[in-house]
């Protein structure tokens, strides 16, 4: 399984930090390479930016720019997150229990076994996976809302995969993408993600994979002929 190394979830007691009463402080766990950090409260912008291997658990909400250009590690949010989660993310995993805002996973990318992954428990705003070049985004829509994602899904997407539970209107899909039926490999990835999500947040979700759609790019170079 490529999505989860499993290595980062170990509780490293020798390097454990707990920060309480956080309210809007920025850049927490920025560039952090090892250890485990627990934060209580509303974390500020660009939290876990450039994070490179640590585990960060947020008991509260996250603001904009969570996991900006994140390289490796885990971010677990027991609440909701703001806009541009995982901007230019190139590795690691972000789990958000509730909803997230606009532009989730904009310009995510992958390289060989470094595959970033964002899991959102509820819904997302517009421009999901804009210019996405790699990685996995899963919108679990646990409350089965009618509108799991906003308009303009994945404009300019040319790599990676997005899974969304629920119906997505045709007009929301950008011209660069297509929807597919989940195959066994997708189901194994999604099952693993949902399992990890359930484990983190002590919830149980339905496993009806027929409700999910898979979004992939039509072409790896959507603008290849644009400037000819």
């Amino acid at each position: 399984m490529i999505v989860f190394g499993g290595k980062f979830m170990e509780n490293r007691a020798d390097n454990y930090n707990n920060i309480k009463k956080v309210n809007g402080e920025r850049y927490i766990a920025c560039g952090l390479k090892t250890g485990r950090i627990t934060v209580e409260g509303i974390v500020g912008n660009d939290c876990a930016a450039f994070m490179d291997g640590a585990v960060m658990e947020i008991y509260g909400n996250a603001q904009d720019g969570l996991g900006n250009t994140m390289n490796n590690g885990y971010v677990i949010v027991h609440g909701h997150a703001g806009d541009i989660v995982g901007y230019s993310m190139r590795g690691g995993n972000i789990f958000i229990r509730d909803y997230a805002g606009y532009r989730i996973g904009i310009h995510m990318k992958e390289y060989k076994d470094r595959i970033p992954c964002i899991v959102i428990g509820e819904t997302v705003g517009e421009f999901l996976g804009e210019y996405m070049a790699g990685g996995v985004i899963a919108v679990l829509n646990k409350n089965s809302k009618e509108d799991p994602a906003g308009d303009h899904i994945a404009p300019g997407m040319h790599g990676g995969v997005i899974y969304i539970k629920g119906k997505v209107a045709e007009y929301k899909l950008s011209p660069q993408i297509k929807t597919e039926v989940l195959n066994d490999y997708d189901i194994s990835i999604l099952n693993n993600l949902i399992y990890k999500y359930e484990e983190q947040f002590h919830l149980s979700l339905s496993r009806n994979y027929n409700e999910y759609i898979k979004i992939v790019p039509k072409n790896s170079r959507p603008y290849g002929k644009f400037f000819i």
Partner: peptide, 21 residues
């Protein structure tokens, strides 16, 4: 602009909502 400012000013963010564009 930020949710934390609402919390800092002493109000509850339980009913917080981000307006769409």
């Amino acid at each position: 602009s930020e949710e934390s400012a609402i919390a800092a000013s002493g109000f509850s963010t339980a009913n917080c909502y981000m307006p769409r564009g």
